[in-house]
Amino acid sequence: MNIFRLAGDMSHLVAILILLLKIWRSRSCAGISGKSQVLFALVFTTRYLDLFTSFISAYNTVMKVVFLALSYATVYLIYMRFRNSYDSENDTFRVEFLLVPVIGLSFLENYSFTPMEILWTFSIFLESVAIMPQLFMITKTGEAESITNHYLFFLGLYRALYIVNWVWRYHTEGFFDQIAVVSGVVQTIFYCDFFYLYVTRVLRGRGKMSLP
């Protein structure tokens, strides 16, 4: 474990908590893409199947349980608890356009052709595009509340910190996980446009920000 990966995991946790608490306290999920949250729950489900088969560390196990629980709680709030505030007219991204290529690629490009490895690869590729429905929804509604922007900022920051972690691990222990690195770079690139707008607008107190 290194400081970059720890900071990344904390940024990820903060992002998930920001969104969950926003929905819970405002008792509304307006402007939130339920599809993205379902995809994230699917990412954690397919990536953390080894939760019961391999023990890495207490931190690793605890964080997996926390991420699974919080992501399913978020999906529950959106589709069950506060479903009448769910904005289904604007959450119209065709997720099959993401799932089909990701499933195909995870069968083509993986470390070993075993169910666990293919599911892990699927989760890595899916995570890189899981935010698309949310970004699409923001372009459709024309703006995002500032709290949603903070969520996106920490979510994008988490994988950017993981990239630094991978550089660090490559130079200190020769660790190189090609699938995770390539996918993580693609994922972070999707946020670049948002990062620019976030820094130039949201941090200047503009509150609402609209993606082009």
């Binding site: 560390s57 972690n165 222990e173 020769g174 660790f175 699938i179």
Partner: peptide, 10 residues
């Protein structure tokens, strides 16, 4: 390098 199959990252 260390084995990427050792999934020690979240």
């Amino acid at each position: 390098g260390t084995d990427p199959n050792l999934k020690d990252e979240l």
